[in-house]
Amino acid sequence: MNAPRPSWNVTTSLPGLSAFVAGEELANLVDDGHDIVVLTADLSTSNRLTDFQARHSARFFNVGIAEQNMMSIGAGMAACGHQAWVSTFAAFASLLCAEHLRTDMAYPNLPVRILAHHAGISMGFYGTSHHAVEDIAVTRAIAGMTVMAPCDAATLRACVRATLDEPGPVYLRLGRGNDPDVHESNVEVQRGRFLRVREGNDVTVIATGIGVQAAVGAAERMAGDGVTVRVLDAVYLKPLDVDAIEIAARETGRILVVEEHNVIGGLGTAVAEAVAMLGVPARIAKLGIEDQYALVAPPSHLYRHYGLTADGVVDRLRGLLSA
């Protein structure tokens, strides 16, 4: 007797992973002759590296639930000349494997790419073990580590291509995979440069990840009040675009930083530090997770709760403008 066919498939029914295009892009690059290998730790359906596996299975290694082993194996392969892509949840990549990122990848300056997906609180009700609101702080403090945060599919493709020839490691901080498109499909990134998303002269929002679309929504609403908001996407968290920060400070005098990260040690800290060292008078506010463990809830509910939405950004902007 035949067993009944399941009507529901956990992988295909996941709420859209359309932003996770790295597997597809990397498979294209292998087709073009690039020596890329991809490793995952039992999460290939969550990060859609199955797209890569389907086309280049000989270059795909699933090491099982052993993230540290994956990091060191990837480093060993990179030491033999491959560009090695390792992938796991940002919480495990940056915290469980922080030493591997430093000692096995950055210190020997190896071409490893760390695809750290589901960063911030995007794992929602999975809870604190799966949240990563410390990873910007950890990875920026590692000498030789480039840190990027593509906020949508097109930017992820651009980041994959932009870093092809980088000799050292790159930490790519990704969201939850269903992140809406913010940039044009032909967006290009330039090392150490923010992306200018929207022009404005009254106040600047420097945002990263999920914060970028929130900032764009806020800027649209503020335009109705006659306030022009400049929006910068901090796609490079390291090296930091100090020039863009300086110009924003000079021209708008007020900067709000929006990030799905602890307000300690993240992008807000980096921007405040840059402004302070530039000596440009500017008022800075930080919108992020206030040095606490986030509640559990579906991600969209958490974003509303912590103000990482257009409404939340508008509230903070109004406060900053009246300060």
Partner: peptide, 30 residues
């Protein structure tokens, strides 16, 4: 390894380098 010719991988944090060696062995296979 970045400073000393003949050192195939840096070391110091005990427990990493059998994994690194496995990566090098996988590379040879590939």
């Amino acid at each position: 390894m970045t400073k000393v010719p003949g050192i195939d991988f840096s070391s110091g944090s005990i427990g990493h380098n059998l994994s690194v060696g496995a990566g090098m062995a996988l590379s040879a296979r590939l």
